[in-house]
Design a protein around this nucleic acid. Structure first.
Length: 749
RNA sequence: UGGGGUAUCGCCAAGCGGUAAGGCACUAGUUUUUGGUACUGGUAUUCGGGGGUUCGAAUCCCUCUACCCCAUCCA
């Protein structure tokens, strides 16, 4: 776990501490109607991760309330994804369909409570009656059906007496609710369809909004974590559980932002389009962000979990850079996998002064990877190197083979170019070279310095393999559709050449092909006759970056010019109040403005003012602190009175307490409703203004932070705030900050 | 045009009235028989804009702006 907590962990800890939750129970509740992708991985990571972190448990539940879309093959894929990522669900896999009978009972209970009714308008009419975002909706005439009628109708719905769409069960909430979701939401609809688990047992199916909260409740879920788009549904979630008056403990819903990654797509619809349109080769195409695709490409579950951890969990919609994902797989594989040599685009080299052959001993791992293992590497007169590793007219900074520049064959000898052979088109087809017999790796006495070591394979012993080079699926950072597809996202190299040990010994399934990247033996197409390797990710390539600079990222978007909108004009009433506050009471214009525009605030102010004639200080605390409390709570919930605020400010006025203490006292008043004077007395909050006492504390603080004293003296004036903070902390906030500031400025000179 | 959210570096993201964490990316250097890795440094005088409160504001208040979600018998 990272050091900093995410907001869900904060909530969980708070709930555990307050006793709101006795035990942490989460659930991963996908609808089995599509293949899981890395977005699901994030949800799995969050739900299973939180359960693990707080010694709770996590259920795997298939939210199978819509029989027309779901299928058991998706159930398997989902289970597989969870297991692959290294998590275990509690008990059996749960299904919402397991709870159909119970959910049905709850529906009947709601009907009996008069909180649900059978509606019989058609879809179009229902939409009209629902109203719009700005206009209230209206209830249909069927909303007035009696409990008996509703019970009877609902029973007949269940028995299958009606066609799809003829009737629905709706919650009776509020057709004029500002939250559209609360305008009598549907709870059951008729669907004469075969369900993949319950078959034809039911012909009515609960809607998400009714089934989800109850399923969570039935399973004893404590924290129901979902994505942001369900924020509006939270009201229904709570309404159902509250209205049914279910025994505690009950679940609470919390939302986080779904994962977005650039250069790819995550929506079910777009993914389906790619697969069905054959733009990719099935759900496990390595270019896809599906779990199956990532897995086939060679990603490890560890790297994906790490990725989820690194990108964090928050409520801001965001788009993570694929580079972050690529980093996690490199970091995971680097210390784990063997290094081998594979030439993808071969160029023949004949070493003219070498006769015979030999076997070089080569470690699978570089010195900085503490793993054991080596193989024999055949070396001979004819070898292949990467075409890129020779340049007749090298650019500046080129370290590889050139007519003038020798290079080391990794694990082998240093060679130098003698002659370049070209075909009729001028293309280099072969290099005649010579080697330095004394330069053998490990026993080099030649004294020749080379700028780099390149990979190679021996011509006779190298094995032909297929290598599939994958690049990002889309060329656009935020792809819209198939027109943004990257035409070069897949490059199949049929005849790459690999050193023999890799396919003969098969020491691993993942490798680093030296200087090229990480590769994975394709789990499906690989055969001994035709080995196939998928490129997982390339190595970081700072040379490639220099030579072919990627199209410069659209440069830092300019700071948007902010246009001030129009401020709503004041009513004449407010205008009058404003003038009185500003002119009469000499209040700051902004403060007067805030006060005048808010009826509750101004009323509160007037009452306090009647007790204490200190308009400025009263207005300040009321437009700030009191305003905050009034925003967060209803008037009835407020535990403090205007008179008490006046009392508080009186103590500020006569310098008994500082502004800072006043805020502390106010917090206490908010919580306990106690009198300010009592709070000050019982907590001994009287302000310390004695320069001698404060001076001593300052000395102590300076002694404890000599480096910061230095920094301050060196010119880091920001640190004054740090010192003030330390002194205040040492006095529990009681030191008079003005005096602290003065004294500090003197002492730190 | 209501309601619900969100805004901190190129991309993520901590922070909850007292010195602007961290990761990716970028960049400079050291090590290196991978132009890899590792290591060391550099990267936000400023938190969407403007005001206000305070000794002190990314954090509290007011206001404006931008983006996302909501009017499926989908989830």
């Amino acid at each position: 776990m990272k050091e900093s907590k995410n907001f869900l962990q904060t909530i969980v800890e708070k709930d555990l501490q307050s006793g709101k939750s006795k035990e942490i129970v989460t659930r991963f509740p996908p609808e089995p109607n599509g293949f899981p992708h890395i977005g699901h991985a994030k949800s799995i990571f969050i739900n299973f991760g939180i359960a693990r972190d707080y010694n709770g448990h996590c259920n795997l539940r298939m939210d199978d309330t819509n029989p027309t879309k779901e299928d058991t093959k998706y159930v398997e894929a989902l289970k597989d994804a969870v297991t692959w990522l290294g998590y275990e669900w509690e008990g059996n896999v749960r299904f919402t369909s397991d709870y159909f009978a119970q959910i049905h009972k709850y529906a009947m209970q709601l009907i009996k409570m008069g909180k649900a009714y059978v509606d019989s308008v058609d879809e179009e009419e229902m939409r009209e009656l629902r109203g719009t975002v700005t206009e209230a909706g209206k209830r249909s005439k069927y909303a007035s059906r009696t409990v008996e009628e509703n019970l009877d109708m609902f029973e007949r719905m269940r028995k299958g007496e009606f066609q799809d769409g003829e009737h629905v069960l709706r919650a009776k909430i509020d057709m004029s609710a500002a939250n559209m979701k609360m305008r009598d939401p549907l709870m059951y609809r008729i669907r004469h369809a075969e369900h993949f688990r319950t078959g034809n047992e039911w012909c009515i199916y609960p809607m998400y909004d009714f089934a989800h909260c109850l399923s969570d409740y039935i399973e004893g879920v404590s924290h129901s974590i979902c994505t942001l788009e369900f924020e509006n549904n939270r009201d229904i979630y709570n309404w159902v559980l509250d209205t049914l008056e279910l025994e505690p403990p009950r679940p609470y819903q919390h939302e986080f932002a779904r994962l977005g990654i650039n250069y790819t797509v995550m929506s079910k619809r777009k993914l389906l389009e790619l697969v069905e349109g054959k733009y990719v080769n099935g759900w496990d195409d390595p270019r896809l962000p599906t779990i199956a695709g990532l897995r086939r490409k060679g990603y490890t579950p560890e790297s994906i979990v790490t990725f989820c951890d690194q990108v964090g969990i928050a409520k801001a919609n965001s788009m993570v850079d694929v580079a972050q994902l690529e980093f996690t797989i490199r970091a995971d594989l680097n210390p784990k996998v063997p290094r081998v040599m594979c030439v993808i685009d071969p160029l023949k080299i004949t070493i003219e002064n070498y006769e015979g052959s030999e076997e070089l001993n080569a470690s699978y791992y570089p010195d900085d990877v503490p793993k054991e293992g080596s193989r024999k590497l055949p070396f001979s007169r004819e070898i292949y190197i990467e075409r890129d590793d020779f340049e007749e007219n090298p650019p500046k900074g080129y370290f590889r083979l050139t007519p003038e520049q020798p290079v080391r064959l990794k694990h082998g000898y240093i060679i130098a170019c003698k002659e370049i052979i070209k075909d009729s088109d001028g293309k280099v087809i072969e290099i005649k070279a010579e080697y330095y017999p004394t330069s053998k790796s490990g026993s080099d006495t030649s004294g020749i310095k080379v700028k780099s070591a390149i990979h190679w394979v021996s011509a006779d012993e190298a094995k032909k393999v297929e290598v599939r080079l994958y690049d990002r699926l889309y060329s656009s950072e935020m792809p819209e559709g198939i027109e943004d597809l990257n035409p070069n996202s897949l490059q199949v190299i049929k005849d790459a050449l690999i050193e023999p040990a890799v396919v003969q010994e098969r020491p691993d399934e993942r490798f680093q092909f030296e200087r090229q990247g990480y590769f994975f033996a394709d789990p499906i197409d690989y055969t001994d006759e035709k080995p196939v390797y998928n490129k997982i990710v390339g190595l970081k390539d700072s040379w490639g970056k220099k030579t072919k600079p990627t199209p410069p990222k659209p440069e830092a978007k300019e700071k948007k010019v902010q246009i001030d909108g129009e401020v709503v004009p004041m009513t004449s009433e407010q205008e009058k109040l404003f003038t009185r506050y500003k002119e009469g009471l000499k209040l700051n214009g902004e403060v007067a403005n805030t006060l005048a525009r808010d009826e509750d605030l101004s009323a509160f102010f007037e009452e306090a003012l009647a007790v204490l004639n200190s308009p400025t200080n009263l207005a300040n605390i009321i437009t700030n602190e009191v305003a905050r409390e009034m925003k967060q709570h209803t008037k009835e919930e407020l535990k403090f009175t205007p008179q008490q605020i006046a009392e508080l400010i009186k103590m500020v006025d006569d310098t008994t307490i500082s502004n800072k203490i006043a805020k502390q006292v106010f917090e206490e008043m908010v919580n306990s409703g106690a009198n300010p004077e009592e709070i000050v007395e019982s907590k001994g909050l009287v302000q310390i203004s004695d320069p001698e006492i404060i001076g001593k504390i300052i000395d102590e603080v300076m002694e404890k932070n000599p480096d910061n004293v230095e920094k301050f003296k060196a010119g880091n004036k920001k640190l004054l705030g740090f010192f003030v903070g330390q002194v205040l902390k040492a006095t529990d906030g009681k030191a008079n900050p003005k005096i602290v500031n003065q004294l500090l400025a003197q002492k730190l000179q």
